[in-house]
Design a protein around this nucleic acid. Sequence first.
DNA 1: GAGACCAGCAGGG
DNA 2: CCCTGCTGGTCTC
Length: 188
Amino acid sequence: MWFNEKPRICLIPLENPPELIRFSILATKFGRILMGMVNAGQHEDAICLIYFVEKSDKETLKELRQRWPKSELLQDDKSVQSVADKLFEDNKENNDVIPIAILGTEFQQSVWAALIGLKSGETCTYSQLAERMGRPNAVRAVANAVAKNEVAILIPCHRIVSQNGATKYHWGSSLKQQLLTFESSLAN
DNA sequence: GAGACCAGCAGGG
DNA sequence: CCCTGCTGGTCTC
């Protein structure tokens, strides 16, 4: 349901790194992902990270520990899988709220919020995103913040293309292309 | 507070 | 293609 035209994504700012992250590695149509959840406010299962597994599970878990050194990490296949099942099911009718917990400065949060405002399948350039935020000169800063996004797919940084046509993507340009192709195939 | 770092961009050769 | 200047938030001293 994440690809619905207007997914009801709710961004929950975190003040500090979470004490406990429950995580699991699971399969999706785009490959294996590592997904983590935290308790945030009234949401028990707020998604705080989605990484693609590029090399091995072991490498990805190492990344997880490096990125979140202050958080206790607990493997919890069952509850993570049940959240992921809803998220990735091919059901446009399901429009439940998707809570996402994020840790970042105000500026970064506003960039991520702007990304979520993009429609499924719609792309835009870094400068267009900066303009949309009312900060037309802060292009490089926007790019910086986009790169710090922890929640692949749900915070759709794959919908950003650079003006010169290059399709760089943290998780590889072929994955970016797959995501965009999938999204535009749903538009009809 | 200084200086380096960036998934940008436009312009010039 | 490569180089340059401009830009602004964040991180590390």
